[in-house]
Amino acid sequence: MWAFIHKLGSPKWFYAISAKLQPWCWAVAALLIVAGTVWGLAFAPADYQQGNSFRIIYIHVPAAFLAQSAFISMASAGLVFMVWKIKVADMAATVMAPFGAAMTFVALFSGAVWGVPTWGTWWMWDARLTSMLILLFLYLGVIALRGAFSSRDSGSRAASVLAMVGVINIPIIKYSVDWWYTLHQPATFSVTSTPSMPMTMWLPLLVMVLGFYSFFIALTLMRTRSEILRREGSKRWVRELFQEAR
């Protein structure tokens, strides 16, 4: 296990193994997202209360899941970088931040659009919405910190610390609907209970969630590979790659 982790920390080895994994991740992501979109928008029945407006759930829920998961992944990568000084972990954390911020914005925007027919307003200072807005600010803070230092290592360490501290916001997001009075509905999926919606609605949602996660993995692999080339450009193996490409 430790030998595999040690290999994974090698930019050269990660670049090589990710080249094999990346096409499969893109293919799975495309297949699942297309299938989930068609299934959810065209074949899933309308909600008995919300009608067709509920279909935004097929974007809103996967984006919200990914916004939180990407932050946890970024904080974990930051911890690995801080403790074991693995450069690939910092590269992965670097590319995760903009994607996580984008997913947080999509979740907030789609939730606001959904709120108009459901709550009659675009925004309320609901516990779930407010904690998600804080998550967006945390992402922007991590991105800003990376560029605020003349030394890349100093920026990486500062961003890693903020990510590790900010991860405490994730359980607040998750349990906010249970801890405080909130308009936001409880979790759509739960490990301990069956989904509250019929299978014809939640199955395409599950497909979309898996598709979004596959997309996240594929994009992280692709962008980490680019970050490796950018940072390791002076290394011999990278120069040899460019020579072979010519």
Rank of each mutant, 00 (worst) to 15 (best):
V116S: 08
L32H: 05
V142D: 14
P198R: 02
T121Y: 05
K85I: 02
F216K: 00
A218P: 03
F215W: 13
I173E: 02
N52Y: 11
I134S: 14
L145A: 09
C25W: 12
I86N: 12
G211H: 01
W26A: 05
W125R: 03
S73I: 00
F4A: 11
A218L: 07
M1H: 08
K12D: 06
G115Q: 03
E232F: 04
G111L: 08
S131T: 12
S176Q: 07
R152W: 09
S18W: 10
A245H: 15
A102M: 10
C25N: 12
L32P: 06
A187P: 05
A97D: 02
M197E: 10
F189W: 06
L32W: 06
A19K: 12
M82P: 03
F216I: 00
P171F: 12
L162S: 06
A42Y: 15
H60C: 02
M199H: 06
E240H: 15
I173C: 04
A89D: 09
K235L: 13
V88L: 03
L129T: 02
W122L: 09
E227T: 05
T94F: 06
A42F: 15
L221Y: 10
T121M: 12
A3H: 13
Y181S: 15
I57Y: 06
A218E: 06
L206Q: 00
T192V: 13
L205I: 00
V95F: 06
W119E: 02
L32F: 10
G141N: 11
I217V: 14
D178R: 14
M124L: 06
A30D: 08
S76C: 09
A159K: 07
W125A: 11
P98Y: 08
L133E: 01
V83F: 05
D126E: 08
A16K: 15
G155P: 03
Y181R: 15
G78K: 00
L21T: 06
A63S: 07
S73K: 00
M124Y: 05
W119C: 04
T104Q: 07
S10I: 02
K7N: 14
L108K: 02
M201D: 04
H60Q: 03
G40F: 02
L138D: 12
L206M: 05
I143A: 08
T200K: 11
I217P: 02
W122R: 03
M91N: 05
I56G: 09
L229G: 13
T37Q: 08
A30F: 11
S150W: 10
E244K: 14
G111M: 07
F137R: 05
S156M: 11
M199I: 14
T194V: 12
V165E: 09
I170W: 07
V142W: 10
K235A: 13
V106W: 13
S151M: 11
V165W: 12
I172V: 14
F54W: 15
L241F: 13
M82C: 09
A93M: 09
P117K: 09
Q49M: 08
F215S: 10
V106I: 12
A107L: 03
T182Y: 08
A107W: 02
R236H: 15
P171G: 09
P117M: 10
F149G: 04
P62N: 00
L140M: 11
Y48L: 10
P98L: 07
